[in-house]
Write a protein that binds this DNA or RNA. Sequence first.
DNA 1: GCGGATCAC
DNA 2: TATGGTGATCCGC
Length: 370
Amino acid sequence: MSSAAGTPSDCGGHRPWQSYHTAYTNAKAGMEGVDREKVQKVIYEMSKGSKYFENEQKKEAITKLKIEHLRAQCAKLTDNDISHFQKVAEKKILELEASRDLSKIWLHTDMDAFYAAVETLENPSLKGKPLAVGSMSMIATASYEARKFGVRAAMPGFIGCKLCPDLVFVRPNFGRYTHYSGLARKVFQRYDPNFFATSLDEAYLDITEVCSERGITGEEVASELRDAVHQETGLTCSAGVAPNRMIAKVCSDINKPNGQFILPNDRDAVTTFVSTLPIRKIGGIGKVTEQMLHQVLGISTCQEMLQKGAFLCALFSEGSTDFFLSVGLGLGGTETPEHRLRKSMSCERTFSATNDSHLLFEKLGKHSYS
DNA sequence: GCGGATCAC
DNA sequence: TATGGTGATCCGC
């Protein structure tokens, strides 16, 4: 199985910070000129030895085991197995291709550094300053000025301070974000009354109708909508336009902030787009899945999902392979999903680590009904 | 079924 | 000093 050889992981060497990757060490909009090596080192130095760090390492060890297991399974495959799964994959790809729908135009919008932008709007003295909305424990959103220092959402504030000593902190004011979110949604409503929001600052719009009714392109709708959002909220947003939601979401990130990217409803355009697209850009593929697919099968781009289709079918569940092959074809989300009700509600709070059984029993008592 | 893992925001 | 909260889904046991 030499074709599926992963990259040798050069971990635990003399530059240990290079192998410590957290959710916020990823490339993101606004991080272009950042000295990644330096940021990595600071994060590592400040994390090293903490309980959090230990837990991260434990989780990494589990991922490593999973990868070993998948590699072993891979090595067991006979030529017969492989040609069998090759046929399975080809059949599946044909089925998926037959389901391709290029008749819809989807738009994904994403407000730029939303919480930080709202706080700056409410308090203009913050303009131009590196700003973190959150606390010393957790940063919810970082302004673009802060991102230049490597400060990012989901990073603990004390590390942000180390990276950017002049970092200004503002506590989150969710009432404000809800208000501005409502203003933006009023705009979305005009372009698609059935639009659906995935968070306060993101939404998907099916703009097929508005395009055909007004005889305008997706690009024109995106410009107009972003203009209107700016007029009515004072905030900027970015947009992506594509034949399905999966790709539209990727597109909205390309020219962030205050930009847009349009992918035409054309099969070639879509396949060319996914041919070099890193799988990590796709919603649903996170740090772990990326590592597994890369280190077991050598997959980095969406297109490689198709080339390694037989191995995907051999190693993963039907649901997973369907998803992976769809990613390879650039398919995903053309129908408007039916409105679904929330299935659960919860409320939790983290308390500081303790071994004190008295404190723990007290917590337990407060939270039990009996 | 349930709990753990993964993912997103 | 210090690494979140909420909701969903999938998978293996």
